[in-house]
């Protein structure tokens, strides 16, 4: 019975994913994907940032602790940063946060980094759709069940 309930719960599970998208590339890619009428999973809520390196660890943690089921950070391809090297710094920040999450046994696969240029509308749709599917399989963020936190 309980299993059935859980399955039902999973079927109804609509993940909430927050995407921090770089203004100069991935945000434009999202725009392109939209205007090209590509099918994009509605699970993703977009937050535009001026650079992927703007995404401080605390922003990501706040997002997770506020109940998001997944976080996507996306910026320009390495070498293509609008500001020169922001995405290289972002990459290090991401690696650190991922390492901390892994070491604490938190589900680090809920966090994803991707490089998507302004011209890659189709790639944007692919990344968002596959990440949403992955989160759907992972299920809801366990933080949402913990009243003590």
């Amino acid at each position: 019975m309980q299993e059935k309930m859980e399955n039902q719960e999973l079927d109804q599970f609509k993940p909430k994913i927050v995407g921090f998208l770089c203004n100069w590339c991935t945000y434009a890619a999202a725009d392109l994907a939209g205007s090209s009428k590509m099918e994009i999973d509605p699970a993703l809520t977009v937050i535009r940032v001026m650079c992927s390196s703007r995404v401080d660890h605390n922003l990501v943690l706040t997002t997770f602790f506020s109940g998001a089921d997944g976080v996507l950070i996306a910026g320009c391809h390495p070498g293509d940063c609008h500001y020169g090297a922001g995405n290289y710094y972002a990459r290090r920040r991401y690696a650190l946060l991922k390492k901390v999450m892994e070491s604490l046994g938190l589900e680090s696969e809920r966090l994803k980094l991707s490089w998507i240029s302004a011209a890659e509308g189709n790639r944007y749709a692919e990344v968002v759709n596959s990440f949403s599917e992955k989160i759907r399989q992972l299920g809801p963020n366990p933080i949402n069940k913990m009243s003590g936190l």
């Binding site: 660890h57 943690l61 602790f65 946060l97 949402n144 009243s147 936190l149």
Partner: peptide, 20 residues
Amino acid sequence: KRGGLAFPSDRVMFHTGRMT
């Protein structure tokens, strides 16, 4: 959503944030 919320909230987040 959680069925309850502890105060002061975000204590675990504070320490995790400091760790990063």
